[in-house]
Amino acid sequence: MKKIFTLSLGLAFSLCFSQGKLYIQNYSNYNLGMRIVAGNTGSCLPEAVASMDFPAQTQDVIDDFNDAFTYTAGWSVRLSPTGNPSYFTAPNGLLNSISPITRWEFAWYQAQDPITGNTVYDTVDHNMADNSAFPNCAWNGSTFVDGTVTDSFWFYIPSDNATYLVIQ
Score class of each variant (00 low, 15 high):
39 G>L: 06
40 N>D: 15
42 G>A: 14
43 S>C: 05
45 L>T: 05
47 E>D: 02
49 V>E: 11
49 V>I: 15
50 A>K: 05
51 S>M: 08
52 M>G: 00
52 M>H: 08
53 D>N: 14
53 D>Q: 11
54 F>P: 03
57 Q>M: 13
62 I>C: 09
64 D>H: 11
65 F>Q: 06
65 F>T: 06
67 D>P: 01
68 A>M: 04
68 A>K: 04
69 F>S: 15
70 T>M: 11
70 T>A: 12
71 Y>Q: 04
71 Y>G: 03
72 T>N: 00
73 A>N: 13
73 A>E: 14
75 W>M: 02
75 W>L: 01
76 S>D: 11
79 L>G: 07
79 L>D: 03
79 L>P: 02
82 T>H: 10
83 G>V: 05
85 P>A: 07
87 Y>K: 07
88 F>Q: 04
89 T>K: 12
90 A>C: 13
91 P>G: 07
93 G>Q: 15
97 S>I: 10
100 P>E: 01
102 T>H: 04
104 W>L: 09
107 A>H: 00
107 A>M: 14
107 A>L: 09
108 W>S: 13
108 W>R: 15
110 Q>F: 02
111 A>H: 00
112 Q>Y: 07
112 Q>S: 06
113 D>I: 05
115 I>C: 01
115 I>G: 00
115 I>M: 08
117 G>W: 01
118 N>H: 02
119 T>H: 00
119 T>G: 00
122 D>R: 04
124 V>S: 06
124 V>C: 05
124 V>I: 14
125 D>C: 03
129 A>K: 08
130 D>G: 07
133 A>E: 14
133 A>P: 00
133 A>T: 08
136 N>P: 02
137 C>S: 07
138 A>P: 01
139 W>M: 09
140 N>F: 12
140 N>M: 10
141 G>D: 08
141 G>I: 06
141 G>P: 09
142 S>P: 00
145 V>G: 03
151 D>M: 09
153 F>V: 12
154 W>K: 08
154 W>R: 09
155 F>C: 03
156 Y>K: 08
158 P>Y: 06
158 P>S: 10
158 P>T: 09
159 S>G: 00
160 D>E: 15
162 A>L: 12
162 A>K: 14
162 A>C: 08
163 T>P: 06
163 T>N: 11
164 Y>L: 13
165 L>P: 07
166 V>R: 13
167 I>T: 14
